[in-house]
Design a protein around this nucleic acid. Structure first.
Lengths: 232, 232
DNA sequence: TCAAGTTATCGACTGGTAGACGAAAACCAA
DNA sequence: TTGGTTTTCGTCTACCAGTCGATAACTTGA
Protein backbone atom coordinates (compact mmCIF):
# COMPACT_ATOMS: atom_id res chain seq x y z
CA UNK A 1 0.00 0.00 0.00
CA UNK A 2 1.00 3.60 -0.34
CA UNK A 3 2.37 5.40 2.67
CA UNK A 4 -0.26 7.52 4.33
CA UNK A 5 1.84 9.76 6.53
CA UNK A 6 4.27 11.99 4.71
CA UNK A 7 7.51 12.25 6.57
CA UNK A 8 8.51 15.44 4.86
CA UNK A 9 6.25 18.35 4.11
CA UNK A 10 4.11 18.35 0.98
CA UNK A 11 5.76 19.69 -2.11
CA UNK A 12 5.77 23.42 -2.61
CA UNK A 13 4.08 24.64 -5.76
CA UNK A 14 4.95 27.57 -7.95
CA UNK A 15 3.44 29.19 -11.00
CA UNK A 16 5.73 30.36 -13.78
CA UNK A 17 5.00 32.45 -16.84
CA UNK A 18 6.43 32.46 -20.33
CA UNK A 19 5.42 36.00 -21.31
CA UNK A 20 6.05 36.61 -25.00
CA UNK A 21 5.86 39.63 -27.25
CA UNK A 22 7.19 40.68 -30.64
CA UNK A 23 9.40 43.73 -30.75
CA UNK A 24 11.40 45.00 -33.72
CA UNK A 25 10.78 41.75 -35.54
CA UNK A 26 12.08 39.61 -32.66
CA UNK A 27 10.11 37.25 -30.42
CA UNK A 28 11.01 38.11 -26.86
CA UNK A 29 10.39 36.57 -23.47
CA UNK A 30 10.22 38.41 -20.15
CA UNK A 31 12.98 37.29 -17.77
CA UNK A 32 14.29 38.54 -14.48
CA UNK A 33 17.64 38.21 -12.79
CA UNK A 34 17.52 36.11 -9.65
CA UNK A 35 18.49 37.97 -6.51
CA UNK A 36 19.08 34.94 -4.29
CA UNK A 37 20.46 31.44 -4.32
CA UNK A 38 20.31 29.07 -5.96
CA UNK A 39 21.16 30.37 -9.42
CA UNK A 40 21.90 33.82 -8.00
CA UNK A 41 22.26 36.24 -10.88
CA UNK A 42 20.93 33.82 -13.48
CA UNK A 43 17.96 34.60 -15.68
CA UNK A 44 14.65 33.05 -14.68
CA UNK A 45 11.01 33.08 -15.66
CA UNK A 46 8.79 35.34 -13.57
CA UNK A 47 6.46 33.71 -11.10
CA UNK A 48 6.52 32.45 -7.56
CA UNK A 49 5.06 30.40 -4.79
CA UNK A 50 1.43 29.44 -4.68
CA UNK A 51 -0.19 30.67 -1.48
CA UNK A 52 -3.09 29.06 0.37
CA UNK A 53 -6.47 29.77 -1.13
CA UNK A 54 -5.13 30.90 -4.49
CA UNK A 55 -5.73 29.34 -7.86
CA UNK A 56 -2.60 28.93 -9.94
CA UNK A 57 -3.69 31.57 -12.41
CA UNK A 58 -4.49 34.05 -9.68
CA UNK A 59 -1.16 33.40 -8.02
CA UNK A 60 0.62 33.92 -11.30
CA UNK A 61 -1.13 37.20 -11.98
CA UNK A 62 -0.20 38.37 -8.48
CA UNK A 63 3.48 37.59 -8.96
CA UNK A 64 3.45 39.00 -12.44
CA UNK A 65 2.01 42.29 -11.23
CA UNK A 66 5.44 43.12 -9.81
CA UNK A 67 6.99 42.81 -13.27
CA UNK A 68 4.50 44.01 -15.82
CA UNK A 69 1.10 45.61 -15.83
CA UNK A 70 -1.09 42.54 -15.83
CA UNK A 71 -3.73 44.44 -17.79
CA UNK A 72 -1.33 44.32 -20.72
CA UNK A 73 -1.58 40.55 -20.85
CA UNK A 74 -3.87 39.83 -23.76
CA UNK A 75 -3.80 36.06 -23.36
CA UNK A 76 -2.94 33.58 -20.64
CA UNK A 77 -3.18 29.80 -20.89
CA UNK A 78 -1.74 26.87 -19.02
CA UNK A 79 1.25 25.13 -20.56
CA UNK A 80 2.44 22.19 -18.48
CA UNK A 81 3.34 21.09 -14.99
CA UNK A 82 6.87 19.96 -14.16
CA UNK A 83 7.47 17.67 -11.22
CA UNK A 84 10.96 16.27 -11.54
CA UNK A 85 12.30 16.10 -7.95
CA UNK A 86 15.68 17.27 -9.18
CA UNK A 87 14.48 20.34 -11.01
CA UNK A 88 15.26 22.38 -7.87
CA UNK A 89 18.62 21.55 -6.29
CA UNK A 90 17.59 22.19 -2.70
CA UNK A 91 13.92 21.54 -2.22
CA UNK A 92 10.93 19.82 -3.72
CA UNK A 93 9.25 22.28 -6.05
CA UNK A 94 6.51 21.62 -8.54
CA UNK A 95 6.01 24.22 -11.24
CA UNK A 96 3.00 24.90 -13.40
CA UNK A 97 3.93 26.98 -16.41
CA UNK A 98 1.66 29.39 -18.27
CA UNK A 99 1.94 31.10 -21.62
CA UNK A 100 1.21 34.84 -21.62
CA UNK A 101 1.09 37.18 -24.60
CA UNK A 102 1.60 40.94 -24.70
CA UNK A 103 0.36 42.94 -27.71
CA UNK A 104 2.91 44.78 -29.82
CA UNK A 105 1.47 48.23 -29.19
CA UNK A 106 1.91 48.29 -25.41
CA UNK A 107 5.36 48.77 -23.91
CA UNK A 108 5.04 48.02 -20.23
CA UNK A 109 7.83 49.50 -18.18
CA UNK A 110 9.64 46.77 -16.29
CA UNK A 111 11.78 46.92 -13.14
CA UNK A 112 15.57 47.08 -13.34
CA UNK A 113 16.08 43.41 -12.66
CA UNK A 114 13.76 42.48 -15.50
CA UNK A 115 14.42 42.41 -19.24
CA UNK A 116 13.04 41.18 -22.55
CA UNK A 117 15.31 38.57 -24.08
CA UNK A 118 15.15 37.05 -27.57
CA UNK A 119 13.60 33.58 -27.39
CA UNK A 120 15.73 32.37 -30.28
CA UNK A 121 18.93 33.31 -28.47
CA UNK A 122 18.29 32.74 -24.79
CA UNK A 123 20.92 33.44 -22.15
CA UNK A 124 21.88 30.79 -19.58
CA UNK A 125 18.85 30.22 -17.39
CA UNK A 126 18.06 28.90 -13.94
CA UNK A 127 16.46 25.52 -13.25
CA UNK A 128 14.61 24.04 -16.24
CA UNK A 129 13.35 27.45 -17.28
CA UNK A 130 15.00 27.29 -20.67
CA UNK A 131 13.01 24.19 -21.60
CA UNK A 132 9.83 25.84 -20.38
CA UNK A 133 10.46 29.00 -22.37
CA UNK A 134 11.03 26.97 -25.53
CA UNK A 135 7.87 24.96 -24.85
CA UNK A 136 6.00 28.25 -24.70
CA UNK A 137 7.40 29.27 -28.06
CA UNK A 138 6.33 25.98 -29.62
CA UNK A 139 2.83 26.29 -28.22
CA UNK A 140 2.53 29.76 -29.69
CA UNK A 141 3.80 28.62 -33.08
CA UNK A 142 1.41 25.70 -33.25
CA UNK A 143 -1.58 27.77 -32.24
CA UNK A 144 -0.81 30.61 -34.65
CA UNK A 145 -1.55 28.20 -37.49
CA UNK A 146 -5.02 27.13 -36.49
CA UNK A 147 -6.43 29.62 -33.98
CA UNK A 148 -6.83 33.38 -33.76
CA UNK A 149 -4.28 33.58 -30.95
CA UNK A 150 -2.42 36.09 -33.08
CA UNK A 151 -4.82 38.78 -31.91
CA UNK A 152 -3.04 38.69 -28.55
CA UNK A 153 0.25 39.70 -30.16
CA UNK A 154 -1.21 42.35 -32.45
CA UNK A 155 -2.31 45.91 -31.78
CA UNK A 156 -6.02 46.76 -32.05
CA UNK A 157 -5.66 47.54 -35.75
CA UNK A 158 -2.90 46.88 -38.23
CA UNK A 159 -2.01 46.50 -41.87
CA UNK A 160 -1.31 43.16 -43.47
CA UNK A 161 2.36 44.04 -43.65
CA UNK A 162 2.52 44.71 -39.95
CA UNK A 163 0.71 41.48 -39.16
CA UNK A 164 2.99 39.62 -41.50
CA UNK A 165 6.04 40.92 -39.62
CA UNK A 166 4.49 39.71 -36.37
CA UNK A 167 3.84 36.25 -37.74
CA UNK A 168 7.29 36.01 -39.24
CA UNK A 169 8.92 36.86 -35.94
CA UNK A 170 6.75 34.47 -33.97
CA UNK A 171 6.86 31.58 -36.42
CA UNK A 172 10.52 31.93 -37.29
CA UNK A 173 9.87 31.79 -41.02
CA UNK A 174 8.47 34.05 -43.67
CA UNK A 175 4.80 34.01 -44.60
CA UNK A 176 3.21 35.22 -47.80
CA UNK A 177 1.21 38.40 -47.38
CA UNK A 178 -1.29 37.19 -49.94
CA UNK A 179 -1.95 33.93 -48.16
CA UNK A 180 -1.97 35.46 -44.72
CA UNK A 181 -4.70 37.88 -45.70
CA UNK A 182 -6.75 35.34 -47.63
CA UNK A 183 -6.51 32.58 -45.05
CA UNK A 184 -7.41 34.80 -42.14
CA UNK A 185 -10.17 36.54 -44.07
CA UNK A 186 -11.72 33.29 -45.24
CA UNK A 187 -11.82 32.03 -41.70
CA UNK A 188 -13.48 35.24 -40.63
CA UNK A 189 -10.71 35.86 -38.14
CA UNK A 190 -9.89 39.20 -39.76
CA UNK A 191 -12.12 42.04 -40.82
CA UNK A 192 -11.33 45.36 -42.55
CA UNK A 193 -11.89 48.55 -40.59
CA UNK A 194 -12.37 50.58 -43.77
CA UNK A 195 -9.52 52.92 -42.91
CA UNK A 196 -6.21 53.12 -44.67
CA UNK A 197 -2.73 53.93 -43.45
CA UNK A 198 -0.75 56.62 -45.35
CA UNK A 199 2.42 55.32 -46.99
CA UNK A 200 5.94 55.97 -45.70
CA UNK A 201 8.53 58.32 -47.13
CA UNK A 202 9.42 55.88 -49.90
CA UNK A 203 5.89 56.01 -51.20
CA UNK A 204 3.68 53.13 -52.07
CA UNK A 205 0.01 52.40 -52.07
CA UNK A 206 -1.77 53.15 -48.78
CA UNK A 207 -2.36 49.99 -46.80
CA UNK A 208 -5.81 48.94 -45.67
CA UNK A 209 -6.25 48.63 -41.94
CA UNK A 210 -7.67 45.44 -40.39
CA UNK A 211 -8.60 44.18 -36.97
CA UNK A 212 -9.17 40.76 -35.50
CA UNK A 213 -12.82 39.82 -35.41
CA UNK A 214 -14.30 39.74 -31.94
CA UNK A 215 -14.82 36.01 -31.97
CA UNK A 216 -14.26 33.93 -28.90
CA UNK A 217 -10.87 32.29 -28.90
CA UNK A 218 -12.33 29.04 -27.69
CA UNK A 219 -14.59 28.86 -30.72
CA UNK A 220 -11.70 28.81 -33.11
CA UNK A 221 -9.52 26.67 -30.90
CA UNK A 222 -10.36 23.56 -32.81
CA UNK A 223 -9.19 22.10 -36.02
CA UNK A 224 -10.12 18.80 -37.60
CA UNK A 225 -8.78 17.14 -40.71
CA UNK A 226 -11.40 14.42 -40.48
CA UNK A 227 -14.47 16.55 -40.25
CA UNK A 228 -17.92 15.20 -39.51
CA UNK A 229 -19.98 14.63 -42.69
CA UNK A 230 -22.63 17.08 -43.86
CA UNK A 231 -21.06 19.99 -42.08
CA UNK A 232 -20.39 22.52 -44.73
CA UNK B 1 5.13 41.85 -0.58
CA UNK B 2 4.11 38.29 -0.59
CA UNK B 3 3.94 36.43 2.70
CA UNK B 4 6.95 34.23 3.28
CA UNK B 5 5.71 31.97 6.04
CA UNK B 6 2.77 29.78 5.18
CA UNK B 7 0.38 29.57 8.07
CA UNK B 8 -1.21 26.40 6.78
CA UNK B 9 0.59 23.48 5.22
CA UNK B 10 1.44 23.54 1.52
CA UNK B 11 -1.22 22.22 -0.79
CA UNK B 12 -1.41 18.50 -1.31
CA UNK B 13 -0.97 17.33 -4.86
CA UNK B 14 -2.57 14.42 -6.64
CA UNK B 15 -2.26 12.87 -10.07
CA UNK B 16 -5.43 11.73 -11.84
CA UNK B 17 -5.86 9.69 -14.99
CA UNK B 18 -8.46 9.74 -17.73
CA UNK B 19 -7.89 6.22 -19.06
CA UNK B 20 -9.81 5.66 -22.27
CA UNK B 21 -10.47 2.67 -24.48
CA UNK B 22 -12.96 1.68 -27.18
CA UNK B 23 -15.07 -1.39 -26.53
CA UNK B 24 -18.03 -2.60 -28.56
CA UNK B 25 -18.10 0.68 -30.44
CA UNK B 26 -18.23 2.78 -27.27
CA UNK B 27 -15.58 5.10 -25.89
CA UNK B 28 -15.14 4.18 -22.24
CA UNK B 29 -13.30 5.69 -19.27
CA UNK B 30 -11.96 3.79 -16.28
CA UNK B 31 -13.66 4.86 -13.04
CA UNK B 32 -13.69 3.56 -9.51
CA UNK B 33 -16.19 3.88 -6.74
CA UNK B 34 -14.93 5.92 -3.81
CA UNK B 35 -14.70 4.00 -0.56
CA UNK B 36 -14.47 7.02 1.76
CA UNK B 37 -15.73 10.48 2.29
CA UNK B 38 -16.18 12.88 0.76
CA UNK B 39 -18.24 11.65 -2.18
CA UNK B 40 -18.42 8.18 -0.66
CA UNK B 41 -19.82 5.80 -3.26
CA UNK B 42 -19.50 8.27 -6.11
CA UNK B 43 -17.52 7.51 -9.26
CA UNK B 44 -14.08 9.04 -9.49
CA UNK B 45 -11.03 9.05 -11.72
CA UNK B 46 -8.22 6.75 -10.61
CA UNK B 47 -5.15 8.36 -9.12
CA UNK B 48 -3.90 9.54 -5.78
CA UNK B 49 -1.51 11.57 -3.70
CA UNK B 50 1.88 12.53 -4.91
CA UNK B 51 4.53 11.26 -2.50
CA UNK B 52 7.92 12.86 -1.84
CA UNK B 53 10.53 12.17 -4.46
CA UNK B 54 8.06 11.09 -7.12
CA UNK B 55 7.41 12.69 -10.45
CA UNK B 56 3.75 13.13 -11.26
CA UNK B 57 3.85 10.53 -14.00
CA UNK B 58 5.58 8.00 -11.78
CA UNK B 59 3.08 8.61 -9.01
CA UNK B 60 0.22 8.15 -11.43
CA UNK B 61 1.59 4.86 -12.75
CA UNK B 62 2.00 3.65 -9.19
CA UNK B 63 -1.61 4.44 -8.27
CA UNK B 64 -2.85 3.08 -11.56
CA UNK B 65 -1.08 -0.23 -11.02
CA UNK B 66 -3.76 -1.11 -8.45
CA UNK B 67 -6.45 -0.71 -11.09
CA UNK B 68 -5.06 -1.88 -14.40
CA UNK B 69 -1.91 -3.47 -15.66
CA UNK B 70 0.15 -0.42 -16.42
CA UNK B 71 1.88 -2.27 -19.23
CA UNK B 72 -1.42 -2.12 -21.08
CA UNK B 73 -1.20 1.66 -21.23
CA UNK B 74 -0.15 2.43 -24.77
CA UNK B 75 -0.05 6.18 -24.31
CA UNK B 76 0.16 8.64 -21.45
CA UNK B 77 0.31 12.41 -21.70
CA UNK B 78 -0.34 15.33 -19.40
CA UNK B 79 -3.68 17.08 -19.72
CA UNK B 80 -4.02 19.97 -17.29
CA UNK B 81 -3.58 21.02 -13.69
CA UNK B 82 -6.57 22.13 -11.63
CA UNK B 83 -6.06 24.37 -8.64
CA UNK B 84 -9.44 25.78 -7.65
CA UNK B 85 -9.38 25.90 -3.82
CA UNK B 86 -12.99 24.73 -3.75
CA UNK B 87 -12.54 21.68 -5.95
CA UNK B 88 -12.14 19.61 -2.76
CA UNK B 89 -14.70 20.41 -0.06
CA UNK B 90 -12.43 19.71 2.90
CA UNK B 91 -8.85 20.35 2.02
CA UNK B 92 -6.60 22.08 -0.42
CA UNK B 93 -5.88 19.67 -3.24
CA UNK B 94 -4.22 20.39 -6.53
CA UNK B 95 -4.74 17.82 -9.26
CA UNK B 96 -2.72 17.20 -12.40
CA UNK B 97 -4.68 15.15 -14.90
CA UNK B 98 -3.24 12.79 -17.49
CA UNK B 99 -4.72 11.12 -20.53
CA UNK B 100 -4.07 7.39 -20.86
CA UNK B 101 -5.06 5.09 -23.71
CA UNK B 102 -5.58 1.32 -23.67
CA UNK B 103 -5.54 -0.63 -26.96
CA UNK B 104 -8.68 -2.45 -28.01
CA UNK B 105 -7.15 -5.92 -28.01
CA UNK B 106 -6.18 -6.03 -24.34
CA UNK B 107 -8.84 -6.51 -21.69
CA UNK B 108 -7.20 -5.82 -18.37
CA UNK B 109 -9.06 -7.35 -15.45
CA UNK B 110 -10.03 -4.62 -13.02
CA UNK B 111 -10.91 -4.81 -9.31
CA UNK B 112 -14.51 -5.01 -8.13
CA UNK B 113 -14.74 -1.33 -7.24
CA UNK B 114 -13.59 -0.36 -10.73
CA UNK B 115 -15.57 -0.23 -13.96
CA UNK B 116 -15.46 1.04 -17.52
CA UNK B 117 -18.13 3.69 -18.09
CA UNK B 118 -19.23 5.26 -21.37
CA UNK B 119 -17.71 8.73 -21.72
CA UNK B 120 -20.71 9.99 -23.64
CA UNK B 121 -23.07 9.03 -20.79
CA UNK B 122 -21.14 9.54 -17.59
CA UNK B 123 -22.63 8.80 -14.18
CA UNK B 124 -22.58 11.39 -11.40
CA UNK B 125 -18.96 11.93 -10.46
CA UNK B 126 -16.98 13.19 -7.50
CA UNK B 127 -15.23 16.57 -7.40
CA UNK B 128 -14.56 18.07 -10.84
CA UNK B 129 -13.78 14.71 -12.32
CA UNK B 130 -16.54 14.91 -14.89
CA UNK B 131 -15.00 18.02 -16.42
CA UNK B 132 -11.61 16.37 -16.44
CA UNK B 133 -12.93 13.23 -18.12
CA UNK B 134 -14.58 15.31 -20.84
CA UNK B 135 -11.39 17.29 -21.30
CA UNK B 136 -9.61 14.01 -21.89
CA UNK B 137 -12.14 13.04 -24.53
CA UNK B 138 -11.68 16.34 -26.32
CA UNK B 139 -7.91 16.00 -26.30
CA UNK B 140 -8.20 12.57 -27.83
CA UNK B 141 -10.60 13.76 -30.51
CA UNK B 142 -8.42 16.68 -31.49
CA UNK B 143 -5.29 14.57 -31.68
CA UNK B 144 -6.90 11.79 -33.67
CA UNK B 145 -7.25 14.24 -36.53
CA UNK B 146 -3.65 15.29 -36.86
CA UNK B 147 -1.45 12.77 -35.09
CA UNK B 148 -1.01 9.01 -35.09
CA UNK B 149 -2.35 8.77 -31.54
CA UNK B 150 -4.88 6.28 -32.87
CA UNK B 151 -2.24 3.57 -32.70
CA UNK B 152 -2.65 3.62 -28.92
CA UNK B 153 -6.31 2.64 -29.24
CA UNK B 154 -5.81 0.02 -31.93
CA UNK B 155 -4.56 -3.57 -31.74
CA UNK B 156 -1.21 -4.42 -33.36
CA UNK B 157 -2.91 -5.19 -36.67
CA UNK B 158 -6.37 -4.49 -37.96
CA UNK B 159 -8.53 -4.04 -41.01
CA UNK B 160 -9.74 -0.68 -42.23
CA UNK B 161 -13.25 -1.54 -41.05
CA UNK B 162 -12.04 -2.24 -37.55
CA UNK B 163 -10.03 0.96 -37.47
CA UNK B 164 -13.02 2.85 -38.78
CA UNK B 165 -15.16 1.55 -35.92
CA UNK B 166 -12.52 2.70 -33.45
CA UNK B 167 -12.40 6.18 -34.94
CA UNK B 168 -16.17 6.45 -35.06
CA UNK B 169 -16.47 5.56 -31.40
CA UNK B 170 -13.71 7.90 -30.33
CA UNK B 171 -14.69 10.84 -32.54
CA UNK B 172 -18.42 10.52 -32.01
CA UNK B 173 -19.20 10.70 -35.72
CA UNK B 174 -18.88 8.47 -38.73
CA UNK B 175 -15.79 8.53 -40.92
CA UNK B 176 -15.50 7.34 -44.49
CA UNK B 177 -13.51 4.12 -44.82
CA UNK B 178 -12.15 5.33 -48.14
CA UNK B 179 -10.82 8.58 -46.76
CA UNK B 180 -9.57 7.07 -43.55
CA UNK B 181 -7.40 4.64 -45.45
CA UNK B 182 -6.19 7.16 -47.99
CA UNK B 183 -5.42 9.90 -45.49
CA UNK B 184 -3.52 7.64 -43.11
CA UNK B 185 -1.68 5.91 -45.93
CA UNK B 186 -0.66 9.16 -47.56
CA UNK B 187 0.74 10.40 -44.29
CA UNK B 188 2.69 7.18 -43.92
CA UNK B 189 0.99 6.53 -40.60
CA UNK B 190 -0.39 3.22 -41.85
CA UNK B 191 1.28 0.38 -43.71
CA UNK B 192 -0.11 -2.91 -45.06
CA UNK B 193 1.09 -6.14 -43.48
CA UNK B 194 0.34 -8.10 -46.65
CA UNK B 195 -2.01 -10.46 -44.85
CA UNK B 196 -5.75 -10.63 -45.27
CA UNK B 197 -8.53 -11.46 -42.88
CA UNK B 198 -11.11 -14.13 -43.98
CA UNK B 199 -14.65 -12.80 -44.31
CA UNK B 200 -17.44 -13.53 -41.85
CA UNK B 201 -20.36 -15.87 -42.32
CA UNK B 202 -22.20 -13.41 -44.50
CA UNK B 203 -19.39 -13.50 -46.99
CA UNK B 204 -17.68 -10.50 -48.48
CA UNK B 205 -14.25 -9.76 -49.80
CA UNK B 206 -11.38 -10.57 -47.45
CA UNK B 207 -10.07 -7.44 -45.78
CA UNK B 208 -6.44 -6.43 -45.99
CA UNK B 209 -4.65 -6.16 -42.66
CA UNK B 210 -2.75 -3.01 -41.70
CA UNK B 211 -0.61 -1.80 -38.84
CA UNK B 212 0.48 1.61 -37.66
CA UNK B 213 3.91 2.53 -38.90
CA UNK B 214 6.55 2.59 -36.20
CA UNK B 215 7.03 6.33 -36.36
CA UNK B 216 7.65 8.32 -33.26
CA UNK B 217 4.52 9.97 -32.01
CA UNK B 218 6.33 13.22 -31.39
CA UNK B 219 7.34 13.40 -35.04
CA UNK B 220 3.76 13.51 -36.21
CA UNK B 221 2.60 15.65 -33.32
CA UNK B 222 2.74 18.79 -35.38
CA UNK B 223 0.47 20.35 -37.90
CA UNK B 224 0.78 23.66 -39.65
CA UNK B 225 -1.61 25.38 -41.99
CA UNK B 226 0.90 28.09 -42.69
CA UNK B 227 3.86 26.02 -43.70
CA UNK B 228 7.31 27.42 -44.21
CA UNK B 229 8.08 28.04 -47.89
CA UNK B 230 10.15 25.65 -49.99
CA UNK B 231 9.40 22.71 -47.73
CA UNK B 232 7.78 20.19 -50.00
C1' DT C 1 4.03 67.20 -65.28
C1' DC C 2 5.96 62.91 -65.94
C1' DA C 3 8.86 58.95 -65.29
C1' DA C 4 10.73 55.81 -62.09
C1' DG C 5 10.56 53.59 -57.75
C1' DT C 6 7.86 51.60 -53.88
C1' DT C 7 4.39 49.32 -51.51
C1' DA C 8 -0.11 47.16 -51.31
C1' DT C 9 -3.76 44.55 -53.35
C1' DC C 10 -5.86 41.48 -56.39
C1' DG C 11 -6.68 37.81 -59.85
C1' DA C 12 -5.32 33.63 -62.00
C1' DC C 13 -2.93 29.40 -62.15
C1' DT C 14 -1.38 25.17 -59.95
C1' DG C 15 -0.92 21.28 -56.98
C1' DG C 16 -2.45 18.78 -53.32
C1' DT C 17 -5.97 16.84 -50.47
C1' DA C 18 -10.40 15.40 -48.65
C1' DG C 19 -15.38 14.11 -49.21
C1' DA C 20 -18.75 11.65 -52.06
C1' DC C 21 -20.06 8.12 -55.06
C1' DG C 22 -20.22 4.25 -57.72
C1' DA C 23 -17.91 0.39 -59.95
C1' DA C 24 -15.35 -3.64 -59.38
C1' DA C 25 -13.31 -7.36 -56.65
C1' DA C 26 -13.68 -11.29 -53.69
C1' DC C 27 -16.11 -13.89 -50.88
C1' DC C 28 -20.62 -16.69 -48.99
C1' DA C 29 -25.03 -19.11 -49.23
C1' DA C 30 -28.89 -21.00 -51.33
C1' DT D 1 -25.52 -19.86 -61.10
C1' DT D 2 -27.60 -16.05 -58.86
C1' DG D 3 -28.10 -12.81 -55.41
C1' DG D 4 -26.28 -10.74 -51.24
C1' DT D 5 -22.32 -8.91 -48.55
C1' DT D 6 -18.10 -6.69 -47.57
C1' DT D 7 -13.98 -4.61 -49.07
C1' DT D 8 -11.29 -1.99 -52.20
C1' DC D 9 -10.33 1.11 -55.77
C1' DG D 10 -10.89 4.79 -59.20
C1' DT D 11 -12.97 9.04 -60.41
C1' DC D 12 -15.23 13.30 -59.84
C1' DT D 13 -15.59 17.51 -57.43
C1' DA D 14 -14.75 21.19 -54.19
C1' DC D 15 -11.77 23.55 -51.52
C1' DC D 16 -7.68 25.60 -50.08
C1' DA D 17 -2.99 27.16 -49.87
C1' DG D 18 1.36 28.50 -52.37
C1' DT D 19 3.16 31.09 -56.27
C1' DC D 20 3.45 34.54 -59.56
C1' DG D 21 2.52 38.35 -62.08
C1' DA D 22 -0.51 42.32 -63.06
C1' DT D 23 -2.53 46.37 -61.32
C1' DA D 24 -3.47 50.14 -58.05
C1' DA D 25 -2.04 54.01 -55.38
C1' DC D 26 1.23 56.47 -53.59
C1' DT D 27 6.16 58.77 -53.27
C1' DT D 28 10.25 61.38 -54.99
C1' DG D 29 13.02 63.68 -58.21
C1' DA D 30 13.96 65.37 -62.76
Amino acid sequence: MTPKSTTEADAAHEALAVVLRVRDGVLQVLLWERARRPFLGAWALPGGRLEPGETLERSLRRHLAAKVDVRDLAHLEQLETRSDPRRHPARRMIATAYLGLVPAHVDPSVPGDTAWQPVDDLPAMAFDHRDIALAGRERLRAKLSYTNIGFALAPPSFTISELRALYRAALGHDVSATNLQRVLLRRRLLEPTGETRPPGRAGGRPAAVFRFAATDLAVTDQFAVLRPPDVR
